[in-house]
């Protein structure tokens, strides 16, 4: 391995070191995303305990089936409440779409492609170089398209923004639903489980001891 490293040219060594650093940074970023997702789901799942606490401690629900039944109904109702903002945003975007297209008659336009005109577009194909067979960005990519703002597309920009916001809000609500569902199933198993750890059946046996014999003379 060291002989292979020594036989490489200086340029290749630098490229290899940069590749390793980029790989480590990439892994750290990916891990941070995963940690964020996991922590968010743990935080969202605690709502399930709040939902089921009173009914469980008072033994109104005393079987796993009854626990899951009530938990499912409460979870569905909470999903509905958390989905209301997303549906309102989508409804608002749809109203803007309908009114705008009734005025302009642009029913066939792709609203996301039109909104994409607000951002830079790059040519990544010309910038990619292959290092040890791995495609990496070697040069600054060329700009294909610069941002352009057209006032007649303003209603399309607004409805795209509202649709994207609705998708994000609904995705978070669905993630919370999944987290609570997983917590409910976990609690249904553990809350009503009984354990025999540390119990020994022979400890309960009470041996009737005979009276001791009087001391002999």
């Amino acid at each position: 391995m060291m002989n292979l490293f020594i036989s490489l040219s200086e340029t290749d060594k630098r490229a290899l070191i940069i590749l390793v650093i980029l790989l480590v940074v990439f892994l750290i970023l990916i891990a941070l995303i995963g940690v964020a997702v996991r922590k968010t789901m743990i935080y969202q799942s605690k709502r399930a305990d709040t939902m089921m606490h009173d009914a469980t401690i008072t033994h109104v629900v005393d079987t796993p089936k009854a626990f899951l039944n009530l938990g499912r109904r409460k979870n569905n109702r909470l999903l509905y409440r958390q989905s209301i903002p997303a549906f309102l945003l989508a409804l608002l975007a749809t109203i803007i779409l309908i009114i705008g297209n009734l005025v302009n008659g642009r029913w066939g336009d792709n609203i996301f492609a039109v909104t994409g005109e607000l951002f830079f577009a790059y040519d990544f194909d010309s910038a990619i170089v292959h290092v040890f067979g791995i495609p990496l960005i070697g040069n600054w990519p060329a700009v294909i398209h610069s941002p352009e703002f057209h006032i007649e597309n303003l209603y399309i920009y607004m409805e795209t923004l509202f649709y994207v916001a609705a998708i994000i809000v609904e995705a978070v609500a669905c993630q919370a639903y999944i987290s609570r569902w997983q917590m409910l199933h976990s609690r249904a198993r553990t809350v009503f489980s009984k354990s025999l750890d540390g119990y020994n059946a022979s400890d309960d046996i009470k041996v009737k001891r005979d009276k001791p014999l009087p001391p002999s003379d």
Partner: peptide, 12 residues
Amino acid sequence: EFALGILWAALT
């Protein structure tokens, strides 16, 4: 935490 983060990122 790092390993769990990688796992959750792979499951994303």
